[in-house]
Amino acid sequence: MSGAPSGGHAGEVFRAFLKLGLTSFGGPVAHLGYFREEFVIRRKWLSDDSYAELIALCQFLPGPASSQAGFAIGLMRGGWWGALAAFTAFTLPSALLLLVFGLSAAAVSGPVATGALGGLKIVAVAIVAQAVWGMSRQLCPDAARAGIAVLSVALIAFLPGAAGMIAAIVAGAVAGLALPRGSAEPGAAALHMPVTTGEGWAALLAFCGLLLLLPLLAVWSQGFAVIDSFYRAGALVFGGGHVVLPLLESGVVAPGWVTPDAFLAGYGAAQAVPGPLFTFAAYLGAVLGPEPNGIAGATLALIALFLPGFLLLIAVIPFWNRVRRINAIRAGLRGANAAVVGVLGAALYMPVFTSAISDMRDFNLALACFVALSVWNLPSWAVVILGATGGVALTLIG
């Protein structure tokens, strides 16, 4: 195991990640910074070179990059039990908070509660706008990739829903093959984790099998329909984090399982808790209209959303040291990532903006939240409080 000391165990991994699960605000990029500080600098579980290569691997794959990195660090330190401990400890705090919010939101009424939920929807506008802006600068730094993003929005405009998003990402990957390749230099340190070639193939078979089988099972059971919807979203999230928003919206709002207002209020609340943004699934599972919902729905949604990213990570680990050298794969990924910016930009307009902004006062509050995030650099939880308070004020003013 390169770059990681021996002798780790699941309990040690759980304690380390639980601290991060309770304190890691700021989204996936910030999480990766917390991980480096904790596991490279302080605990010295792996080297800087190994950590950089691990991040390259996780950003190469669909799924929640920070949670995949945490899973891999747990795997390197404590084997399979360590990987499970890392995921559980990092995810559980925010999942429980959002579950409680989902179970209690329907019982809260009155102008203050209505205003606060409206404010959370407006906060979602600012947060998604900031995500589009930040990702565009990182993933569309040239004219060619900016063009891929714009064409992705156009494709979704004429082919709405999940089909349009999938088509946009596939088309972006194909277009990426025509981008200038440059030099695809591999990282300085190869990764060595306790995953055999056989386990990698088994994980890939499980990933593909579920992707093909779940839509068939969904016809017979609402429970399988829920699992299928969240699993497909998790399997297609290039870029992680906020990119899951349009995929989840297509999966739960379009069929009428969750109202647009409840969806955006939960998304806003998800910004105020630490840990991975993917725990938004716990809230959505809890507030689903048809059963399973509540605790059972939250559990199914949470596992289904995270599972495909972890299966792909396990599948690629044994082959990564060779795959990372293939120029065509890296070029296709750059095109797909540019298309993701377009997918998220389309979601910023609908459903986020069209559902949350009804007049100039709402727009003014959204703009204030955006400036607070992007210019004043306030933490996301503080902006959530600002937005909820502003929403209450707008409601009381009438």
Rank of each mutant, 00 (worst) to 15 (best):
S2G: 13
G3C: 03
G8Y: 12
G8P: 04
V13E: 00
F14N: 01
K19E: 13
G21R: 00
L22K: 02
T23E: 12
S24Q: 02
V29Q: 11
A30R: 12
H31M: 14
L32Q: 05
L32F: 09
Y34K: 10
Y34R: 05
E38W: 10
V40F: 13
K44R: 15
L46H: 11
L46G: 14
S50N: 11
Y51T: 06
Y51H: 11
E53K: 00
E53D: 15
I55R: 07
L57F: 10
Q59H: 09
P64T: 13
S66W: 06
A69C: 13
G70H: 02
G74C: 03
M76D: 02
G78S: 07
G78D: 10
G79Y: 09
W81G: 08
T88Q: 00
A89L: 07
L92K: 01
V100D: 09
F101K: 01
A106Q: 14
A107M: 13
G110Q: 11
T114E: 15
G115L: 13
G118P: 01
G119C: 11
G119D: 06
A129I: 06
A131Y: 10
V132A: 10
W133D: 06
G134E: 05
A143I: 05
A143Q: 13
A144G: 12
G147V: 01
S152V: 03
A154W: 14
I156D: 08
I156S: 03
A157G: 08
A163H: 13
A163Q: 12
M165Q: 14
I166L: 15
A173S: 15
V174L: 15
A175D: 10
A175M: 14
A189Y: 07
H192W: 02
V195K: 02
E199C: 04
W201D: 00
F207M: 01
F207A: 08
L210E: 02
L212C: 11
L214I: 09
Q222W: 10
Q222G: 10
A225V: 12
D228N: 15
S229I: 01
F230N: 05
A233L: 08
L236T: 12
V237L: 09
V237A: 14
G239T: 04
V243H: 12
L245V: 14
L245G: 03
L245N: 05
L248V: 03
V252W: 11
V253E: 06
A254N: 11
W257L: 01
V258Y: 12
P260N: 09
D261N: 12
L264C: 08
A265Y: 09
G268H: 10
P274H: 07
P276W: 10
Y283Q: 04
V287Y: 08
L288T: 12
P290M: 06
P292M: 06
I295T: 08
G297C: 11
A298Q: 07
A301T: 07
L305Q: 02
P308I: 07
F310S: 03
I314G: 01
I317A: 08
P318T: 06
I329S: 03
G332S: 07
G332W: 11
A336H: 05
A336S: 09
A338L: 09
V343L: 14
L344T: 01
A346Q: 04
Y349C: 05
V352M: 13
F353W: 15
S355D: 09
S355G: 01
F363R: 05
L365H: 04
A368N: 00
L378R: 13
P379K: 06
A382E: 00
V383P: 00
V384D: 00
V384P: 01
G391K: 09
G391T: 03
V392T: 01
T395A: 13
T395E: 15
I397L: 15
